[in-house]
């Protein structure tokens, strides 16, 4: 039951990602792609800074005790957002998401298969290959 609730929450968060792409495309056309990207990270960073003040038992120090590569998520994020603002005006939100999706699934398979980035190794099986093929066909159909 709790599982289903968490998954529902994640599903809604996924819908939010598409709304973000839908907002970013037109915004980037008007104010510039990098400015649109900046607005996302700036507002996000400020909101989370506020939230951080009210979090009980913050562990900010622990962040910098982690191996440095674990902290690179913030460098990867802008790449995704910049691509979103560039692509949506040209190909539409649907196509953008399918493209992102293919990259996401292919990369997550590679990460699992080879155990990159410290994740445990999970070999690619027939199901996953079939899923990837279906997504590529869908991409071509869109």
């Amino acid at each position: 039951m709790q599982h289903a609730l968490i998954l529902l929450g994640v599903l809604i968060a996924g819908m939010g990602l598409s709304v973000e792409a839908g907002l970013l495309g037109p915004l980037g056309e008007q104010v510039g792609h990098l400015s649109a990207t900046l607005s996302i990270f700036m507002v996000g960073a400020l909101l989370l800074s506020l939230a951080l003040v009210f979090v009980p038992r913050r562990q900010l120090g622990a962040l910098f005790k982690q191996p440095r590569w674990l902290l690179t998520g913030g460098i990867l994020g802008p790449v995704y957002v910049i691509v979103l603002t560039l692509a949506t005006p040209v190909v539409g939100v649907g196509m953008t998401m399918v493209g992102i999706l293919s990259g996401q699934i292919a990369a997550s398979m590679a990460i699992d298969h080879f155990g990159w980035l410290g994740s445990e190794e999970r070999k690619v099986d027939g199901y996953r290959v079939a899923a990837l093929v279906m997504i590529l066909v869908a991409l071509w159909l869109m």
Partner: peptide, 28 residues
């Protein structure tokens, strides 16, 4: 570009999931 964007997103959720488990959700 889109494929690279998606690949980067996958790498990021993998990295952030690990970081969040160690330091807390808001911090990460």
């Amino acid at each position: 570009l889109l494929l690279v964007g998606g690949a980067v997103l996958a790498a990021q959720s993998s990295i952030n999931g690990r970081l969040g488990a160690k330091t807390g959700i808001i911090e990460s």
